[in-house]
Structure formats: C-alpha cells, structure tokens
Design a protein around this nucleic acid. Structure first.
Length: 137
DNA sequence: GCCAACGTTGGC
DNA sequence: GCCAACGTTGGC
C-alpha cells in the first residue's frame, strides 16, 4: 500500500466534483515524472487530494480503483490514466502554509518540487497530514 | 497579474 | 548533446 498526493485546480475539477461524480479518471498528465507515479499506483492506494490555486490545501482522501491504462484523451501510448474515487473528506483542510511550517514535511515533493502534479508520500508524511486535518483513516 | 521554477522543444 | 527560447504551473 502506497500513499500519494495529486493536485487539481478546483476551477478545473474540484474535490466536490469528484464527490458528485463518485469516481473519475485521472487523465491528461503530460509530465514523465507524474506519469511514472501514476503507473506505480496500485488498486487501493490512498491519494491525498490537493487543491492548487487561490486556497492551496489538502481537502480529502481518494482511493485508486483502477490501475494505469492508456490515457483516453490521447492516442500517444506514452500517457496513462488511473481511476480514483473519493474516500473521505478531511475534517479540517490542511493548507499549504501549514505544511510548510511543519518541519517533518519539509522534504516532501509538494514543497521541494512545486510543479509536480502527482507525487508519492511516505506513510509518515501521509499520516501526519491527516493528523493535521483532524482525520483518521 | 506577476514572476520564479522548471519541463520541453528545436536549432545548431 | 548542448543550450537558448518558450510555455506552463502554481504561489503570492
């Protein structure tokens, strides 16, 4: 079981959209590093759902329901999509600001690699963010 | 709206 | 294979 974090611009596709849809395909990734992370996702893996933009924060937990397959938005077989579904909303969203202030999260990709949209998290970092959001699995 | 960071593209 | 130009992301 691995833990991940994905970013979405809420004006494009928000957590609420995911809850409304019940499930979605995570497609359109056009960055090799993010793509490699998508390919490494396994069914049942936990995915923190992060909103970028005006109010950058982690808002919920999603779960991988289908592992990597050809991205239907392109014929180019370099790119893949996965399916995720909402698992749990955080009691309190965890703002980027709070993550930055937490010493133990100083080294996560969200901070070190601002532009990466799909990244792995250690279980420790994942648990810590959940605790900051007053949420337990 | 600006700008820093950084991935990608294309000329050589 | 280098590197400058360019485009995009995302925080502020």
């Amino acid at each position: 079981m691995s833990c991940w974090l994905v970013k979405s611009e809420p004006s494009a596709y928000s957590w609420d959209d995911l809850v409304r849809d019940g499930k979605t395909l995570w497609d359109g990734v056009r960055n090799y590093q993010a793509r490699n992370n998508l390919k490494a996702m396994k069914k049942g893996d936990l995915v923190l759902y992060y909103h970028s933009g005006a109010a950058p924060e982690v808002v919920g937990i999603a779960k991988v329901v289908k592992e990597a397959y050809q991205d239907p938005t392109t014929d180019d077989d370099r790119w893949v999509a996965v399916d995720i579904k909402p698992a749990k909303v955080l009691k309190k969203p965890v703002p980027l600001d709070g993550i930055k202030k937490e010493k133990r999260l100083r080294n996560i990709a969200l901070i070190k690699q601002g532009r990466l949209s799909v990244m792995p998290l250690t279980k420790e970092a994942y648990d810590l963010i959940l605790r900051m959001g007053s949420t337990s699995e």
